[in-house]
């Protein structure tokens, strides 16, 4: 008897929640503009969804040996400067039209990442490789895999590991494309 009452109220609560959720969804009340931040609950929901998904997908990726080489830094640095610096900044810059206007805000990749301090360097590299190759849905982060092979993406990952160490002068020298013979970038 008590079980049936309990069960009945559970079903009614679930139905009400579903109905209320649907009502909210169709009401158009949730602010969708990039200039209004998510509330904490939505933020937590989306962040958890993203981090769990990336971690699971990137888990099996093997990091190639010898990432930290001057060749990788030169290839990855020039690509980063051409394709990423507008959103992810470069040494000496603290904001751009993209960091001010996009939401989620593109993280400043010239800062040493402390939020993943507990992750080892292999985990960081795998995660970055996966994100660069596949992009992130419903954010400004594009997938670069369709237009760039894995080798070039790994070179960008290698560059990202050293980017927080670079001052503006070092960054300029390493990322400048001038004076190359151009053979590898046709």
């Amino acid at each position: 008897m008590t079980f049936r009452v309990y069960f009945k109220s559970l079903v009614i609560t679930a139905a009400l929640a579903l109905f209320g959720g649907g009502l909210f969804l169709y009401s158009g009340l949730y602010p969708m503009g990039a200039d209004v931040e998510h509330n904490r609950f939505t933020y937590w929901l989306l962040e958890t969804l993203r981090e769990r998904s990336v971690a699971r997908s990137a888990d099996a990726i093997e990091v190639p040996p010898g990432l930290d080489s001057s060749e990788h830094l030169l290839s990855g640095g020039a690509d980063y400067n051409d394709m990423c610096a507008g959103c992810h900044l470069k040494p000496g810059k603290t904001d751009s039209d993209f960091t001010l206007g996009l939401y989620p805000v593109p993280p400043n990749l010239t800062l040493a990442h402390d939020e993943h301090a507990d992750a080892d360097s292999g985990q960081i590299a795998r995660r970055q490789f996966w994100i660069i190759k596949h992009g992130i849905k419903a954010s400004g982060m594009p997938a670069w895999g369709p237009t760039h092979d894995d080798q070039r993406i790994w070179a960008m990952v290698a560059f990202l590991q050293r980017l927080p160490d670079l001052d503006p002068e070092q960054y300029q020298i390493i990322t400048a494309r001038g004076e190359t013979n151009g053979s590898s970038h046709h």
Binding site: E169, R177, G178
Partner: peptide, 14 residues
């Protein structure tokens, strides 16, 4: 390539 940025190597000597 002609309008690609040149590395500013002078800053290296400083």
């Amino acid at each position: 390539m002609t309008d690609a940025e040149q590395p500013n190597c002078k800053s290296m000597s400083n």
